[in-house]
Amino acid sequence: MKDKTIEYVLRTTWLAVQKMYNEEAAKFESTMATGFTLLSIDPEKGTSSTALGPKMGMEATSLSRILKTMEKNDLIERHPNPEDGRGVIIRLTPFGREKRAYSKEKVLTFNETIKKNVSEEKLKHFFEVSELINEMISNKKIYNQTDSSLK
């Protein structure tokens, strides 16, 4: 552990989680990205397409490819936003709700298993450190991006 950087541990852990979810999703002809998207869409009211990207922390171009595939696979439908004529509301189809329930079950199983094997105190510290890293990145406290040497 001494020689590993924080980035290395974050990346390898995330890649292992991603691989695990993709292997599970593949059993049902899906992907982790599709499952994450299904879980990010409000199952009752739907979610506006413009709110979905930021909610998931994704760029619009990546999200639009996922949504196009999901629509082709009858997981979602696009409807005009009644509050904004230019916008679109993404709603789950009955098949999308079914796949969402499956995705939710897998996420809950993962979380329950981790909670059974990691103390509450360690998990609390994990979340505190993760939040601090995200805050520092969001507030540009790691690399001073206004530094003239970066221009």
Rank of each mutant, 00 (worst) to 15 (best):
V107S: 04
T109Q: 11
G85N: 09
A25W: 00
I66Y: 00
I89T: 00
S40Y: 03
W14V: 05
V107F: 08
K4T: 06
F36A: 01
D74W: 06
W14G: 01
D84F: 09
Y8L: 06
R86Q: 14
K45I: 01
K140R: 10
L10Y: 06
A51G: 08
T47P: 03
S40F: 02
S119F: 04
Y143W: 08
I90Y: 04
V17P: 01
V88Q: 04
L132R: 14
S130Y: 12
D3V: 06
R11S: 11
D147L: 02
I133N: 14
N144M: 03
P82K: 13
L67E: 01
W14C: 10
S62R: 15
S149Y: 12
M70T: 00
K27T: 14
M70K: 00
I114D: 08
P94G: 02
P82V: 10
T93L: 04
G96N: 02
L132N: 14
E112I: 03
R65C: 10
Q18V: 02
T93K: 06
L67T: 00
S48E: 15
E131D: 12
Y143V: 12
L63V: 12
K104D: 13
T93I: 04
T113S: 06
H125C: 04
N22P: 02
E59Y: 06
V17D: 13
I137S: 06
H125F: 08
S149K: 11
G85F: 05
T93E: 06
G35Y: 12
V118H: 11
E98N: 11
I66V: 09
I6S: 07
N144Y: 11
V129T: 15
R65P: 08
A33C: 00
E83I: 12
E112Y: 08
L38M: 07
K124T: 15
S130T: 14
T13Q: 07
G57L: 09
W14N: 11
E23N: 15
M136A: 12
E44M: 04
L108A: 07
Y143I: 07
Y143E: 11
R78K: 14
F127M: 09
Q145P: 08
R65V: 11
R100V: 01
K2E: 15
N144W: 07
H79E: 15
V17G: 05
K116A: 15
V17C: 09
R65M: 09
E121V: 13
R91H: 14
W14H: 14
E71N: 03
S48G: 14
T113N: 08
L123G: 02
E59G: 13
I137E: 11
V107H: 05
A101P: 01
L75Q: 05
G85L: 10
L150I: 10
M56Q: 04
P54V: 09
S148T: 12
F28K: 14
P80A: 02
K116Q: 10
F95V: 04
A101W: 01
Q18L: 05
I76D: 01
K4R: 10
K19P: 00
M136Y: 13
E128V: 03
K4L: 10
E23D: 15
L52S: 05
K151R: 10
A60M: 08
F28E: 09
E128Q: 02
D74V: 03
P43H: 03
N144Q: 10
